[in-house]
Each structure stands twice: as structure tokens, then as C-alpha cells.
């Protein structure tokens, strides 16, 4: 099962996705995993990671650091993937994967066969600005990934300042 949570910066999407993952885990025996994809480069990154750690402290998540490879071993559990946009940026700009969308889709499909996967992604599509070719390619690939994952998903939610706007399925 796949659930997708999207939204802009500071839209409260992580909080909604965490709550969904916790509720899904209540009815399962497997583990509750937090797949952290962010590579930390500086103090600002450290603070962001620290903020998210505080937010989920005591909620029962096992943190798995996976900036460039999503561990597909778990079975029967709930995986919160935080977040797709960082995972894609790493695949494109650090690991230089030739087919980043294909790699990530393969990982998510493998995970979702045996687990519930809650994916946090990002709305980066509406600022109307022009960017360099690399960034334009990133936006296009993230958009297509979002479309493909939302097509497979049972639940698609957009977080609008903490309010869940359900585009597909029913909120769990």
C-alpha cells in the first residue's frame, strides 16, 4: 500500500504523514521505519534534521539513513519515506544515476510489495520561475514521479497549512 503526502515548504506535510504512518503501524506487527533521505551539508541542514527528530521523538520510529539507496529488506512494516524530493536530488546530483526515476520507482515498488509505504514529496511546480537545465530536469522528473506514485497510491493527500486536502482515497 502506498500513501502520498505532498505540499509546499512549511505546509505541515511531514506531521500529517507521520500521523498516518503511526496509525497504519497500530494495525500491523512489523516495524515502523523512518527513511531519512537528507544529506546534511551545513548548520541549516543540521537544524532541519534536529527539528524533525524532535517532532518524531518518542513516536516509535526506527530511523534508517538512506540518502542514496532505499533499504528494501523490511517486511510487514510501515515505512515513512521522508522525502522523495531529497531522494531524487541525491540520485541526480550526488550519485549521478542515469535513470533516477526508474531506480526510485523500483525501490518504492519493491518496498510496497511487502510493506505500507507513506511517501512525503514536495510541491515545487508553481513558482513560474526559469531555472538552469539541470534544475528544470529535476522539476520534470519529480513531477512525473509524483504522478506515477499517486497513480499507484491508495491515498493522496495535499497538506495546506496543516489541513489535509484529500485528492484520492480516504484518510487513515
Amino acid at each position: 500500500m502506498i500513501c502520498v503526502f505532498s505540499g509546499g515548504s512549511g505546509s505541515g506535510k511531514s506531521e500529517l504523514a507521520e500521523k498516518c504512518a503511526i496509525r497504519l503501524a497500530e494495525s500491523r506487527k512489523g516495524g515502523l521505519y523512518y527513511y531519512a533521505t537528507m544529506r546534511v551539508w551545513d548548520k541549516e541542514g543540521e537544524r532541519r534534521v534536529e527539528k524533525h527528530r524532535r517532532q518524531r521523538a518518542g513516536r516509535g520510529f526506527v530511523t534508517v539513513e538512506c540518502p542514496s539507496y532505499l533499504d528494501t529488506e523490511p517486511s510487514g512494516g510501515v515505512i515513512l519515506l521522508e522525502c522523495l524530493s531529497n531522494r531524487l536530488a541525491n540520485a541526480m546530483f550526488c550519485d549521478r544515476d542515469e535513470d533516477p526515476a526508474g531506480v526510485i520507482l523500483g525501490e518504492v515498488k519493491a518496498l510496497a510489495e511487502k510493506n505500507s509505504v507513506v511517501i512525503v514529496t514536495n510541491e515545487v511546480f508553481s513558482d513560474g520561475a526559469e531555472y538552469d537545465a539541470e534544475t528544470e530536469r529535476y522539476i520534470d522528473i519529480l513531477g512525473r514521479l509524483n504522478c506515477e506514485l499517486c497513480r499507484m497510491a491508495e491515498l493522496v493527500v495535499e497538506s495546506v497549512y496543516g489541513i489535509p486536502v484529500v485528492h484520492k482515497g480516504e484518510l487513515v
Binding site: G8, G10, V124, V160, Y161
Partner: peptide
């Protein structure tokens, strides 16, 4: 509604988007 674009290069712009987001979450 701001913050629906690529993360800006400038730190002050990133902070601004986050600030609007957090503030609006509280108001909502």
C-alpha cells in the same frame, strides 16, 4: 500561498517561506 516552488538559493528567502508556512499552520 508561498513555498510551492524550488527551494531558493538565498537563505533569507528560504527562511521567509518557512516562516509563512509555520505562521499559517498556526492561524489555520
Amino acid at each position: 500561498e508561498v513555498g510551492m516552488g524550488i527551494v531558493p538559493m538565498e537563505k533569507s528567502e528560504r527562511d521567509y517561506r518557512d516562516d509563512v508556512g509555520r505562521t499559517l499552520c498556526a492561524i489555520a
